[in-house]
Amino acid sequence: MAKTQISTTELHSPNGAFSQATTVAATGRLVFVSGMTARRPDGSIAGVGDIREQTRQVCENVATAVRAAGGILADVCRVDVFVRNMEDFAKIHEVRAQFFSEPLPASTMVEVSKLAHPDYLIEINAIAVIAPTGSESMRGVEWT
């Protein structure tokens, strides 16, 4: 997948792990990842009360869903982030920067009053574009 991070001096530079805009070649499969929360595979909630740990689990869950669709985290071109406390912005992006590298996905973050469970602090949904097998791709990008 050819993905390009768009940056212009006509807009303020992002202050987190995201781009002003992202372009993606239209060849490939679109993958729409539902809102991921801090649920572990066993159903328990990771990091109750800890936004960094919940963000880490959410990013791992997004990566797992994208892998199950045949892609990698570098194939993600957009995320929507729902948080209980916008004051956690810097902590969330500190963790996101460990998962997403340039070209960064486009992103929107919104503070909400409630999520599906009272212990959830963050939820992220994503859109990925996965190149057909054998096509130009970002497959060499590693995530941690």
Rank of each mutant, 00 (worst) to 15 (best):
M1L: 15
A2G: 14
S7H: 11
T9N: 13
T9H: 06
T9D: 15
E10R: 08
L11A: 05
H12S: 07
P14Q: 04
N15C: 07
G16L: 11
G16N: 09
A17S: 15
A17G: 10
F18Q: 14
S19E: 05
A21E: 08
A21Y: 06
A21W: 04
A21N: 11
A21T: 11
T23A: 10
A26L: 15
A26W: 09
T27Q: 15
G28Y: 15
G28E: 09
L30Y: 09
V31R: 08
V33Q: 06
V33N: 10
S34I: 07
T37A: 03
D42E: 06
G43R: 05
G43D: 02
S44V: 03
I45C: 04
A46F: 03
G49H: 11
D50M: 11
E53L: 13
E53M: 05
Q54H: 03
Q54A: 06
T55C: 02
R56T: 04
V58H: 00
V58S: 03
C59Q: 00
C59A: 06
N61L: 04
V62S: 02
V62C: 02
V62Y: 00
A63I: 01
V66E: 05
R67W: 06
A68S: 05
A68E: 11
A68C: 02
A68F: 07
A68L: 09
G70M: 04
G71P: 02
I72E: 07
L73R: 02
V76S: 04
D80T: 10
D80V: 11
V81Q: 05
V83D: 03
N85C: 01
M86Y: 12
M86P: 01
E87S: 10
F89R: 03
A90K: 02
A90F: 00
H93F: 08
H93W: 06
E94Q: 14
V95N: 12
R96P: 13
A97H: 14
Q98H: 13
F100A: 08
P103L: 05
L104K: 09
P105G: 04
A106M: 00
A106V: 00
T108A: 02
T108V: 03
V110H: 13
V112R: 12
V112Y: 07
S113C: 07
S113V: 12
S113E: 14
S113N: 07
L115C: 01
A116Q: 03
H117G: 00
P118C: 00
Y120R: 02
I124R: 00
I127G: 07
A131I: 01
S135H: 09
S135W: 10
M138E: 15
V141N: 10
E142A: 14
E142I: 12
W143T: 14
T144N: 07
T144H: 12
